[in-house]
Nucleic acid binder design. Structure first.
Lengths: 182, 182
DNA sequence: GAGAAAATGAACCGATTGGTTCAACTCATG
DNA sequence: CATGAGTTGAACCAATCGGTTCATTTTCTC
């Protein structure tokens, strides 16, 4: 708490005066961090709105960007802290997920739904597609980076994204991606 | 430490006499838990050795079993503790992953390589295929279970597995799965 | 059964930490 | 200038916790 007060440029009693409790402070900090991560991710997903008819390239682009923010300092710490405090704060998972990864999945599902309507994607269930797309990227990344403790160089990251997008497109893509009516 | 000693049916100084340190005790406990989880998972993957010509069914079967152990008490606690102590024990990720998820990926890659040789799977890179297979299962599961804080009923779990295997087979499968020469 | 090795439990130590107290200080407004 | 709200820092409190001590008892071994 003293360190937190110092970093905030304020005295310890002031912190307690404003936040009241360490638990309260912790919840606020986590919610705030989740919002920041989510904002980054949403901005990335929005780029799918106008893909230049190059779906695979667009997916790889946002994949690379998503992985970059998901492996950043903030997202890694947020994930570690959430897992760490799961036992002490059972509702923390819901809060963090509701503000960050959950919304990311929703936003991605929205894009996929539009892409499906436009005939660029065969996603009968866009929510499931979004879930799996994120899993195909973050899963291997988390494994390769040893839960974020090893830095994965850009080339390997791009390879992970390429492989993930490859699998995704093979499962959900429409061959040669010309527009097609229902 | 007193609680640990009690649970072990032994006095506190005895614990220190044998393990020396809380850090040491922690490392031993984590390694042991990782071994237990890995043993369960390896046994499941071995079932892929003789799939009854029903590849999709076999994949769903081991998918369901893997998710069951990966969401159990031990695996969940192991994951939470690993993340929690990442900052204090930077090498913990390597140890745990090397003993559990890493070996699981290797074993699964072995199976996929054999399946590819037998013409049942199109896996030019079995390691990557194994990585993605696990990601397709555990990723959505972790999301739906809110990091393990919510129990996911059997039906939903099976649906996750079905969807994951579906995507996997569409990306890596060989249509109608008859045997085929190179 | 004697002697050594190990286990016991309970008290104890020192460090850390969440949180509070309080007198002194800052600074706005009236 | 007076006043009252808010801030400061430093000391302080109580609880927790990792680890140790030690006299006593148990257990193993010869």
């Amino acid at each position: 708490m003293q360190e937190i007060a110092d970093e905030a440029g304020v005295a310890k009693p002031t912190v307690y005066n404003h936040l009241g409790d360490k638990e309260n402070l912790f919840r606020h900090a986590m919610a705030n961090a989740a919002d920041l991560v989510m904002a980054e991710n949403l901005a990335v997903v929005e780029r799918l709105r106008d893909h230049g008819d190059e779906l695979r390239a667009a997916l790889e682009d946002i994949g690379n960007r998503l992985l970059k923010t998901c492996c950043g300092q903030r997202a890694s710490s947020l994930r570690a802290l959430t897992y760490a405090q799961l036992a002490a704060f059972p509702d923390l998972a819901e809060v963090v997920q509701g503000r960050a990864s959950g919304r990311l999945g929703d936003a991605l599902a929205d894009r996929f739904a539009q892409l499906a309507l436009a005939g660029h994607l065969r996603a009968e269930d866009p929510v499931r597609a979004a879930e799996q797309f994120l899993a195909l990227l973050t899963g291997p990344m988390e494994a390769r980076s040893r839960l974020g403790t090893r830095k994965v160089d850009a080339a390997e990251t791009r390879e992970i994204v390429r492989a993930g997008v490859d699998t995704f497109v093979r499962a959900y893509g429409i061959e040669s991606s010309p527009k097609r009516v229902l």
